[in-house]
Computed example of a mutant assay.
Amino acid sequence: MTDRLPHERGFHVSWDQLHRDARALAWRLDGRDWRAIVAITRGGLVPAMIVARELDIRTIDTISVKSYNKQEQGGLEVLKSPDPALMEDGDGILVVDDLVDSGRTLELVRNMYPKAHFATVYAKPKGRPMVQDYVTEVSQDTWIFFPWDMALQYVEPYRGSD
């Protein structure tokens, strides 16, 4: 068996799977009185839209945090903040992202809005303490391939060709 690079331990998520998982997240979040949803862009946009639809939440804003550069984590930078009048201290606000990995992005946003509720579709062990709700946990060394990052193409069999 050959050693694989860390990104080769992949979890490929289809559009259909993401939709089902985001709906499952919405079901876990149902029954609470949310004032608004804040999506962490870019990855949180699609799950936030699905959760907003399922829970009939019409007020949606975004926070843009840049933390990755070509699949390597770097410094955090808030590029765009949500409306301060909407956010206040975060009470009644649902913050949605696609994934919590190291937890650094959500920690930054949590410090900005300490009373907000944080939910992601997928969670890795290091970042899991940063979220109150998530659907699926994957190992820390798994790279999640989201549908917006992928194109259909031929893949060589794991054991190689005949």
Rank of each mutant, 00 (worst) to 15 (best):
S14V: 02
P114T: 06
T136I: 12
L55H: 00
A85C: 01
Q17H: 03
G75E: 13
M112W: 12
T62A: 04
H12M: 15
L18V: 07
D16A: 00
L29A: 11
A22V: 02
R9F: 10
V138C: 12
D89F: 06
A22C: 05
I93N: 02
V78F: 14
K124W: 07
A151K: 08
M87F: 09
D89G: 04
I40N: 07
S161Q: 01
I57K: 12
P84F: 10
E107G: 12
R28D: 05
I60H: 14
I63G: 08
M1I: 00
T62G: 02
Y68I: 00
D162R: 00
G10Y: 10
I63F: 11
D89H: 05
R104G: 13
D21T: 02
E72T: 08
Q73T: 06
I144N: 11
I60F: 13
G31Q: 05
I37A: 06
L94I: 01
H12G: 15
W34V: 13
Y113M: 05
L76Y: 02
E77P: 08
W27K: 07
T59K: 15
D33H: 15
K80N: 06
G160M: 01
H19W: 10
Q17T: 02
K66Y: 09
I37R: 10
K124L: 06
T59L: 14
E137N: 04
L79I: 15
R58W: 14
H12L: 15
P114N: 10
D91V: 03
R42K: 13
V100T: 12
A85L: 04
L5T: 11
G92A: 04
R32L: 12
D141F: 02
F11S: 14
T105K: 08
W34K: 12
V95S: 08
Y134R: 07
A24G: 00
Q153C: 06
M130A: 15
A123W: 11
P114G: 13
H7C: 15
V65A: 06
V155T: 08
V155F: 05
P129T: 03
R20M: 12
F118Q: 07
V51G: 02
S14A: 01
V155Q: 04
A39C: 10
P157K: 05
H7Q: 15
V121C: 08
L106A: 13
D97N: 14
P147K: 01
V96T: 10
W34C: 11
I144L: 07
E8R: 08
E72R: 07
L108Y: 07
A116C: 03
L106K: 13
